[in-house]
């Protein structure tokens, strides 16, 4: 491991001050400072020599571990709330089942106990060509190329939102649920506090895959605020993968619906494992709302999510698999089938 400075902050301001704001100019990869929360991404990548920060600011002493219900019905989650605590919180299990399920579908118990809400939002890609420190990777070394295109790209590579520069999926399950729910990311930085719409937080790779998110240098996520729950909504997260645990999604769906009899009034659909960011599918939602729930409808609308998909050498199957994730989730939510059966 390379040597770096280590600072432990006991408050948000102190953390931001210790961090400074001149980092990340070189593409967030080498030099500069990094915040350390659960460490489940950062420490791995530092040990792999893929991230090489000069300074690590440990924010585990920063009191951002509360979950509070706001007056307007939204739920404000501190950035340091662990994935385990968030998944088990009664307000989450009652109002945002999709989020609890998504969290519990991710990683392993040990990782969830360490991983934090803010850290999960900042999770980095699992693309092996990014992580090997050697292959061409525009994210790691802008301009070097994308070895995943033309390489092995079956599992952790996307069919939606890809570019000639990068095809890695965003690996988070939690973020897929948040994309469906709708949320605001509260951040604080050298220039003060601001809010970022969750949908705008993660960036498409385009030709700058090294730019992964909307944070400015030195900014720290302090909270994620979930939109107020939809009344009488049902929600569920369905994750499809090769093995039944401890694998990133090959395809997943986060679905929230409200029903009036058999008519879908509102729908929120987001996809994981298939997109380069947590993938909201508004075209699917629009095609569902006002319609009678039926498997035929679901199959038809699910196709729309992949109208603009690009299949690479080994991941074309994600196009039908992603549709299956949408259809089965909708069927289970609208037909009162035991959703745990999937």
């Amino acid at each position: 491991m390379r040597h770096f400075d280590y600072a432990r902050a006991d408050g948000t301001r102190a953390a931001i001050q210790a961090h400074g704001s001149d980092d990340e100019a070189a593409g967030y990869q080498t030099g500069g400072a990094a915040y350390l929360a659960g460490g489940t991404t950062l420490l791995d990548l530092v040990k792999l020599d893929v991230m090489q920060p000069d300074k690590i600011v440990d924010i585990n002493g920063v009191a951002l571990d509360e979950i509070e219900r706001l007056d307007d019905g939204r739920l404000r989650i501190g950035a340091m709330v662990t994935n385990t605590a968030l998944a088990r919180d009664e307000r989450v299990t009652a109002d945002y089942a999709v989020l609890s399920q998504a969290l519990l579908a991710g990683a392993s118990t040990q990782l969830r106990n360490k991983a934090t809400t803010g850290g999960n939002v900042m999770q980095r890609v699992r693309c092996p060509y990014f992580r090997d420190g050697v292959s061409d990777c525009n994210k790691r070394e802008p301009g070097s190329g994308c070895a995943a295109i033309g390489g092995v790209n079956r599992s952790v590579h996307a069919v939606l939102g890809t570019s000639e520069s990068c095809i890695a999926t965003h690996p988070s399950d939690m973020c897929v649920a948040m994309a469906a729910i709708g949320a605001t990311v509260e951040v604080e930085g050298p220039d003060g506090k601001r809010e970022i719409d969750f949908a705008e937080f993660h960036l498409l790779p385009g030709d700058t895959p090294e730019q992964e998110h909307a944070l400015k240098p030195g900014e720290l996520i302090t909270h994620v605020v979930l939109d107020a729950p939809m009344q009488n909504a049902r929600s569920s997260y369905l994750k499809l993968r090769d093995r039944q645990s401890y694998q990133f999604a090959l395809a997943s769906s986060a679905v929230i619906v409200t029903l009036d009899g058999n008519t879908i009034r509102k729908a929120r659909v987001a996809l994981g494992g298939v997109g380069t960011k947590p993938w909201r599918a508004p075209e699917v939602e629009a095609a569902l709302e006002g319609k009678q729930a039926s498997e035929a409808l679901f199959a038809d609308v699910a196709k729309r999510a992949f109208d603009n998909a690009t299949a690479y050498a080994h991941n074309a199957y994600k196009i039908p698999l992603g549709q299956q994730a949408i259809v089965r989730n909708l069927v289970d939510l609208t037909q009162s089938v035991d959703p745990t059966a999937a």
Partner: peptide, 16 residues
């Protein structure tokens, strides 16, 4: 024996 080998209607890759 992975799931993609068992699926029907897998489209052709459009790129590498």
């Amino acid at each position: 024996i992975t799931l993609d080998k068992l699926m029907e209607d897998v489209p052709q890759a459009r790129s590498a």
